[in-house]
Design a protein around this nucleic acid. Structure first.
Lengths: 130, 130
DNA sequence: CCGTATCCGCCCGGATACTG
DNA sequence: CAGTATCCGGGCGGATACGG
């Protein structure tokens, strides 16, 4: 049996359905690609992670992600909002106040963020902070 | 106390060291950024995941990641190799044979890949394959 | 304060052709 | 088979200025 085709029992769930829902599922050869479509954006997982501790306002996010320009931050936040991962609440006050938080769906990816954080922390400690 | 600065006890490990190793650590405001530097490339986590089941040859990777051109696949593999995540073994035979596999360091990120895969599978099942 | 609008450089990444 | 070489277009993303 061919090694390439026999690999990855973990994709079985999706590949089995490939015949039924060709248009949607044929897009991905593995579930990770679907995940990346949602959180693969340049600042998305960083944004999400900063929101795991609670609600943040726009310029609070700006401060903890200084490398992201307002344009980029807005763009990524809008995509996250459209994909149902974050809530955007506008308070009609002056000066304006907008709060971002994780939806329940957004909270479901916390395990991914945690594993990335855990690994990154260890990596920085063992290889970069000597 | 300021909300922004008081957030994220999980980054404490790194932020504490910021004064000591300014050049290296000041690059990141959170560990996730370090992780993304290594596996944030366009096809990197997909490549790594396909290698979790064992060694694969170049054109086996091509088949499971058809959207990646040979150029892109090579580039991403070289970066993964330079970062110590994958092994590249060249067999001096004709026709050529090159095998890619995870290093021990590369295997250490499997938890991340697993969580991404688990989440992606559930997402596809619950929202895309109806 | 929270964005949008506009301009624009750059490089990511695809297509194609070619080699050891 | 496992890549390189070359060209090139599109869009990512930065800088700046402005608006509600």
């Amino acid at each position: 049996m061919n090694q390439v085709e026999s690999n990855h029992s973990r994709t079985a769930v999706c590949t089995e359905k490939k015949e039924n829902t060709d248009k949607l599922s044929s897009k991905y050869n593995c579930p990770i690609e679907a995940t990346l479509d949602l959180i693969g954006g340049k600042y998305k997982s960083i944004i999400l992670w900063h929101l795991t501790n609670g609600t943040l306002r726009f310029n609070e996010l700006s401060k903890v992600i200084p490398q992201a320009t307002p344009k980029m931050l807005t763009q990524q936040l809008r995509e996250l909002e459209n994909d149902g991962l974050v809530n955007r609440v506008v308070y009609p006050v002056i000066p304006p106040k907008v709060e971002y938080s994780l939806t329940d769906f957004g909270k479901s990816i916390i395990p991914i963020l945690d594993s990335m954080c855990t690994w990154g922390t260890r990596y920085l400690r063992d290889f970069k902070c000597d």
